[in-house]
């Protein structure tokens, strides 16, 4: 019985003489967990996320999703929110929904429509006509409307106003499924720390800390935000 996500001695180096972006990273994520992937800029978070999604090829080591290497099968069960706008600008929101429904068997159209209407977003608008915050919400809605096994959210709340942040966090909680897990990468720790089960702190391509968040609170008597500041003090 393989774990949902298994990373084994993963290395990603870009040049022969250069320091690797990821240096022998290993960890496991089971199902039904919300895991925070935290670290300063350039720590290797995004590289790790791209490797899990098959957007980069590893230098050595393994990325296994339900026991399989990244490929067509893993992409069908991973729902990925990138840290950039990847939706086609000339399409309307409705067309994007149709596109997702066409390619992903696990896409829940009703859910997407319902989330759009509760955020009062007009599905007839073109992506390029939307404000940055609205575009991010739309991308998130599309990603969260899939009944995937692994959600990978790269900075889901960074570009959004505080009210929408609450909505997004509640949506993430409401979407919770014992069979699925969420890997969340963000630098807005205090906003999300209450919803995380586990946390992985990364710096310079290595894991500094990997633990359940409650255990950390118990041990250190501090919030995750405070611990982060300590670990990554400049």
């Amino acid at each position: 019985m393989s774990e949902l996500l298994q990373i084994e001695e993963l290395v990603k180096a870009y040049g022969k003489g250069q320091k690797p972006a990821l240096d022998h990273i290993s960890f496991t994520v089971g199902s039904g967990r919300i895991v925070g992937l935290l670290g300063p800029n350039g720590s290797g978070k995004t590289t790790l996320i791209k490797l899990i999604n098959g957007l980069l090829t590893p230098t050595s080591g393994k990325v296994l999703i339900c026991g399989e290497q990244p490929g067509v099968a893993s992409k069908a069960i991973i729902s990925y929110l990138p840290d950039r706008l990847s939706l086609p600008g000339d399409q309307t929101i409705g067309e994007c929904i149709a596109y997702y429904r066409d390619f992903y068997k696990d896409f829940d159209t009703e859910r997407a429509e319902q989330m759009l209407s509760s955020l009062q977003i007009d599905r007839k608008k073109r992506i390029k006509a939307l404000s940055k915050g609205t575009r991010e919400k739309v991308q998130l809605i599309l990603v969260m409307s899939r009944r995937a096994k692994l959600y990978i959210l790269d900075e889901p709340i960074a570009g959004v106003d505080p009210a929408a942040r609450d909505y997004i966090i509640r949506t993430i909680i409401g979407n919770y499924d014992k069979e699925a897990s969420i890997l969340l990468s963000t630098h807005l720790i205090s906003d999300v720390e209450n919803i995380l089960d586990d946390v992985i702190l990364i710096q310079d391509g290595s894991i500094r800390l990997s633990s359940s968040v409650e255990d950390l609170r118990e041990e250190k008597g501090k919030s995750l935000d405070a611990i982060f500041r300590e670990v990554f003090a400049c």
């Binding site: 067509v72 992409k75 990847s86 086609p88």
Partner: peptide, 13 residues
């Protein structure tokens, strides 16, 4: 491009 993030995460080879 940025759109590549969408294209390459579709369940296609």
């Amino acid at each position: 491009g940025d759109r590549g993030y969408l294209t390459h995460t579709l369940p296609v080879s």
